[in-house]
Design a protein around this nucleic acid. Structure first.
Lengths: 204, 204
DNA sequence: ATCTAATCTTGACAATGTCAAGATTTTTTA
DNA sequence: TAAAAAATCTTGACATTGTCAAGATTAGAT
């Protein structure tokens, strides 16, 4: 009777996964608790055994967002030599852009799905986001040591790099840049040009 | 009978204003059509005489968001001499930050309240956002002409500046920066430091 | 084997977005 | 100026959704 057992087995993760699927297929406005439950094959109130409320599920989906960004960055830079930290930085930025373009609603909910004031209630979320920030920080530190980036307080430069990339990507997926701008160049090329406005040596 | 007339007179704007008030007092999650209607003193379905649906009201609230940002920037830089475009740029960035911090939910909904795909349906929104972009572009152009910013394609540098400021401000109101970071310096000071990573001459 | 806690279902309720029908007011037109 | 048309607003209804309470079922501990 493996097909019809009462317990799901791993419903919590199934719900998170179902939510992320809905985000990618139908967008944020279609993300309802009941639809997530149906997609996971359980009744409409089943999620309440694993999540306090909808906000709690969104917190988990957001944490998973940071985890996926982290994994994507790691797998993109893991084979790059430490001799070229600027290439790591470039590839990390491109991976960030790629995630935002591919999973735009997941990206969006990851950054503003949780009410700012309630963030302390979700330690797992804070942990996931901090891990991403630390990863970027390490990249920036490498770049500073090899003269790619100016030597200023590490947190300061990290915030500069992250803000530039995050701002560009956010404005891009929100379509704040006119369509006819940047006809010829791709979004990837433009992002690298922006990065080069901060770096001391050119990233190609 | 001025007190009890059937027609409101300017209900459309009253609804937009009521919506913005709710955003500032109770946040995005509390923004419902019915509450907006009640706040404006009309019945729950009255908004449908002026807006196609909730999304349409949000589009108007978002347009007004860009208008307020525009006005805020203008009034902040209008008295600054053309001899100091870097000060204009600095004050504009600070005004942007101030709006985001003061009206964070209005800021948030302005940038991602409208479904990206549907943006073409709201020409008023596009017009308002373009006006802001153009304002920033003019500032950037002045800075390039006076040697404050590198001379590259204007749109490219505008996107760089806007992305940096917007990214920082967005991450800030989403509390993505750890609390204990940047204890000593204010957010304003930090923003200026970030800008200085792009400018050729130091902005103080 | 029994007890306890975890997990899931069913049923209910209030809030919300939306529409249809109709009332009231304003504007147009003849 | 009077009738017709359009705009504005209300009331009532319905489906969707978040949430909770009560109870059924299962898993794990004693």
């Amino acid at each position: 009777m493996r097909e019809k057992k009462y317990h799901h087995g791993d419903l919590k993760n199934a719900l998170i996964k179902a939510g992320i699927e809905i985000l990618s297929q139908e967008g944020i406005s279609a993300l309802s608790l009941r639809k997530v439950a149906t997609k996971a094959g359980v009744s409409h109130a089943a999620p309440y055994s694993h999540f306090k409320d909808k906000q709690d599920l969104i917190a988990s989906i957001s944490s998973e967002g940071f985890n996926r960004i982290y994994e994507k960055l790691i797998s993109r830079i893991k084979d790059i030599s430490d001799d070229y930290p600027e290439i790591k930085l470039k590839e990390a930025a491109l991976a960030y852009l790629e995630f935002a373009l591919t999973d735009s609603d997941h990206f969006r909910i990851t950054f503003s799905g949780i009410i700012e004031k309630d963030k302390e209630k979700y330690p797992e979320y804070i942990k996931s986001s901090l891990r991403c920030f630390t990863l970027v920080k390490n990249l920036v530190e490498e770049c500073q040591q090899k003269g790619i980036l100016e030597k200023c307080p590490l947190d300061e430069m990290t915030v500069a790099i992250w803000s530039l990339v995050h701002g560009f990507v956010s404005l891009l997926i929100d379509r704040e840049f006119s369509h006819n701008l940047f006809e010829k160049e791709t979004q990837q090329e433009l992002l690298i040009k922006l990065l080069n406005k901060i770096t001391l040596k050119e990233i190609k």
